[in-house]
Every structure is written in structure tokens, then in C-alpha cells.
Simulated scan of single mutants.
Amino acid sequence: MILEHALLPVRPELADDFEAAFARARPIIAGMPGFRSLSLSRCVETPGTYLLLVEWERLSDHVDGFRGSPEYLKWKELLHHFYEPFPVVEHFSPVIDQHSTPVID
């Protein structure tokens, strides 16, 4: 499992429009091969910042599959104009999650 992490800087006056556009864009990403789940959270201290977390089966499902697809162009058209500046996207693999117990020697 790979966890995609992106802090999305949205101009605060566009927050409602962004959230509505994201609701329309969600089915696009959710229908992609390798997609597992996503969450979108709004920062309490900085209301124009959103945290997007997307679980993928494999890194290639996001980087090659989604980003290389015609569906990504629809996603981009719906959302990318809200970001200022464009977000950095990083990928993580789990070390400890809620379903595992760390090994202690």
C-alpha cells in the first residue's frame, strides 16, 4: 500500500468552490485501478490549506496509471486552477498502522 500526501493551498475565498469541485472530481479518482481510499481535510489554523491523503495499491497506480490517464485531464481541469502555489505530492509506505503491532525486541 502507498499513501499519497498533498497539502493543497487554496485561496480561502475559493474554499467553497474548491470543495464543490472536489466532490465532483472524487468519482474520477475513485474509479481508477489501484485506488483504495481517500480523505480530504481542511486545516483549522490555516483554512485555505487542505490535506489530501489517497491510498493506492502501488506507486505506479498513481504515478503511471492515474496521472497518465485521460481521467487525470478531467481531474486537472476541475481542480488545478484552485492551487496557489501548486502542491507538492509525496508518497509514503506504512511502517506502523492501526492494524499492525510494532515489533519490540
Rank of each mutant, 00 (worst) to 15 (best):
M1Y: 06
I2A: 07
I2R: 13
I2H: 13
L3R: 12
L3W: 06
H5Q: 10
A6H: 00
L7P: 04
L7M: 15
R11E: 12
P12K: 01
P12T: 01
A15D: 07
D16H: 12
D16S: 14
D16A: 15
D16W: 10
D17A: 15
F18Y: 14
E19I: 01
A21I: 00
A21N: 01
A21F: 00
F22L: 12
A23D: 01
A25I: 00
R26T: 03
R26C: 00
P27G: 09
P27T: 12
P27C: 08
I28W: 06
G31D: 10
P33M: 11
F35I: 09
S37R: 07
L38I: 00
L40M: 13
S41K: 11
R42E: 03
R42Y: 03
C43Q: 12
V44L: 15
T46K: 03
T49K: 13
L52I: 14
V54T: 03
E55C: 01
E57I: 00
E57F: 01
D61T: 00
D61Q: 02
D61Y: 03
D61A: 01
H62L: 09
H62S: 07
V63D: 09
D64E: 15
D64G: 05
G65C: 11
F66L: 09
R67S: 11
G68Q: 12
P70G: 04
Y72I: 10
K74G: 00
K74C: 02
K76A: 14
K76Q: 15
L78H: 06
H81Y: 07
F82D: 07
F82K: 04
E84Y: 08
E84M: 10
P85W: 12
P87F: 08
V88N: 11
V89L: 11
V89A: 08
E90M: 09
E90Y: 06
H91Y: 09
H91A: 05
F92E: 04
P94R: 10
P94C: 11
V95H: 08
V95C: 05
I96S: 05
Q98L: 10
H99A: 10
H99Q: 10
H99V: 06
S100I: 04
T101C: 03
T101A: 02
T101K: 05
P102T: 02
P102M: 05
V103G: 11
V103Q: 15
